[in-house]
């Protein structure tokens, strides 16, 4: 730790006039440390806050603002919530929107029920004390996460292609299978994330706890569910909410594999691709930045609702143990 500098208070920052002026030197020494503004806090906070504000908060607020405007005679005019009403009541748009929301929820559900349990299983296996070559497995299992989505999409498209690959059924070409297939491709890629998070918690569980359980006659199965799992539970919540946010924002894999029209017949259309088409337009369809911002705002609200549900419904109730 570097000691804090005690000289040169910054001009005027949070320091009252008398202290900052020449009279400051004459002020009672005892009061000084208390009144001094903690400069280092600014130094720590400002860079992150500035970058976050410029690249996250400002664009977000601006897109919220944009969603309440619409072009009228070539001029962007404030229209209040008209865009939202249009999005939710227009038969074409609302059908596309709810289809995208539903597909997005399915996309998330597949991750939730496949990726996270597999991640947990792999983490539990990796944490087995008798396992050899742990580092190798860990690296191999985590590797797909670091690959580009374009590569993952391309490789899997070839593997399951009826022409070049091993599967005769056109999995990506049927509306009944396309979305789930895409979700599983994404699961394959990202299973390393929950695995590594669970693994980090599992190896931090003190041996005394598991040894005590063993001495009490608990089997490995019982030890896992009665001792380890309750300790993992807070992480399960975090992994779930991270999965939710990432999947509701998903776009790249589907765009790479199926294009912006997310076929067949919009069976793999999620909110990201719907937003892309609405905002930028597609082929002869012309983009609308205001309607696009409306879709983006709805995405934001849905994600916000999910995250709030997690905070109030889960995180406040789940018990965390201090190990």
């Amino acid at each position: 730790m570097t000691p804090l500098r005690t000289t040169e208070p910054p001009d005027g920052l949070g320091v009252d006039d008398t202290a900052a002026s020449g009279a400051g030197a004459a002020a009672p020494p005892a009061a000084r440390p208390r009144r001094r503004f903690p400069t280092h806090l600014i130094v720590f906070i400002v860079p992150a806050a500035a970058i976050y504000t410029i690249f996250m908060v400002y664009p977000l607020l601006d897109s919220l603002r944009l969603s309440m405007f619409a072009p009228r005679d070539g001029v962007q005019t404030f229209v209040g919530l008209d865009n939202f009403v249009h999005l939710l009541t227009d038969d074409l748009l609302s059908e596309a929107f709810w289809n995208a929301v539903w597909n997005n929820l399915v996309f998330f559900a597949v991750h939730f029920v496949v990726q996270n349990p597999i991640g947990l299983l792999l983490a539990a296996l990796l944490a087995t004390p008798t396992l050899r070559g742990r580092g190798t497995y860990r690296t191999l299992l985590f590797l797909p996460t670091t690959l580009s989505v374009v590569i993952v999409g391309f490789i899997w498209q070839l593997i399951i292609s009826p022409v070049w690959g091993f599967v005769d059924t056109p999995l990506l070409g049927q509306s009944s299978t396309a979305l789930v297939t895409l979700a599983l491709m994404s699961v394959w890629q990202y299973v390393g994330i929950p695995m590594i998070l669970f693994y980090a918690v599992l190896i931090s569980i003190p041996d005394e706890l598991t040894e005590a359980a063993t001495v009490d006659g608990a089997s490995a199965w019982t030890t896992f569910w009665r001792v380890k799992f309750p300790l993992i539970l807070p992480t399960v919540g975090i992994v779930s909410v991270v999965t939710y946010v990432a999947n509701m924002n998903a776009f790249d894999l589907i765009y790479t594999v199926k294009g912006a029209l997310a076929g067949p017949d919009f069976a793999s259309d999620i909110m990201g691709t719907l937003f892309f088409r609405t905002f930028f337009g597609f082929q002869l369809q012309q983009g609308s930045s205001t309607m696009g911002a409306t879709v983006a705002t709805m995405m934001f609200l849905l994600i916000l609702a999910g995250v709030l549900l997690y905070f109030y419904g889960w995180q406040r109730r789940v018990e965390s143990y201090q190990l």
């Binding site: 074409l92 070409g173 509306s175 029209l261 067949p264 082929q283």
Partner: peptide, 26 residues
């Protein structure tokens, strides 16, 4: 291409979807 793809739904995108579905038999 001319004029008929100006509105919503846009005829060109619709023809993509419909032609593909006609071939898919759906």
């Amino acid at each position: 291409y001319q004029i008929l793809s100006r509105g919503e739904p846009n005829l060109e995108n619709q023809l993509w979807d419909l032609s593909a579905q006609v071939l898919n038999g759906t």
